[in-house]
Amino acid sequence: MNTPTEPTTLRAWLLAETPTSRRQARAASWYQGWLTLRSNPLTMIGLIILVFIIVCAILAPVLATHDPFAQNLGERLKPPGFDGHIFGTDSLGRDIYSRLLYGARISIYIVLLVAMVAPLLGLIIGTVAGYAGGWADVVLMRITDIFLAFPRLVLALAFVAALGAGIENAVLAISLTAWPPYARIARAETLTIRNSDFIAAIRLQGAGPMRIVTRHIWPLCISSLVIRVTLDMAGIILTAAGLGFLGLGAQPPSPEWGAMISEGRKYLLDYWWVATIPGLAIFAISLAFNLLGDGMRDVLDPKGGQ
């Protein structure tokens, strides 16, 4: 038996063969994941873009050159680079660059809220249905099927129309339309896990269904959900932008990216930058999430490697 030697560097401590505390074991497994993530260059590009956008959103008041809501009708529809307007101005003379920075806050806010609500709902419904089986499974999965049967944007439109326009309602509507696929994944994972020996073993220790589902099944479902959520983020942003574009998401004068494209489309041929620049921003954040999601699959997939 090798005795644990006193590690000298942080890296050695993280990569130690025999961790000596719970904290070290957990940190080491996170570090292994980080090393896998880092070895994929495309993932790192996605991560860098994302970090960049998040930093921009946090530092928006510092980085912005103008007030995003200040109108200046004398300088409307000026091209990029005109008189300190890096990306030009829109139809009301507002600085597009500053609006873009503040718009990042809204996008990230939407993404975070949806990412917290939809997967959690799907996880609870899916694992309960999968573990309980029988009637609970039939009822919960038919409800899931009903939600799955509608096209996402149409259902979101119906919800927003019923609840009233606005970002919060858009988030709620997107979450309500986004959970069914997560419930399906969680249920499928649960069905493969529930009959495995380690679940039988913990049942024989006297663990109840609540503990088994939350402590033993959830940790194994979460990885496939995280992958799916990151890959879906692009779709969520596009849906949010789509709702904004249709006038049912963020309301003017909010600098939400979809709403900015919607305003710019009237001038698309003559003043291309008004719609194109927020479009590029949506493209960048969607791409970043997709790249990151791909890398997350390598790190988190419980079936791969290890």
Binding site: A25, F198, L204, P219, P302, Q306
Partner: peptide
């Protein structure tokens, strides 16, 4: 009463120390 299972690769939770 406790039980030891056949396959030690399947009887331990892969995410638990």
């Amino acid at each position: 009463v406790q039980m030891v299972f056949q396959d030690p690769y399947a009887s331990l939770h892969p995410r638990m120390t």
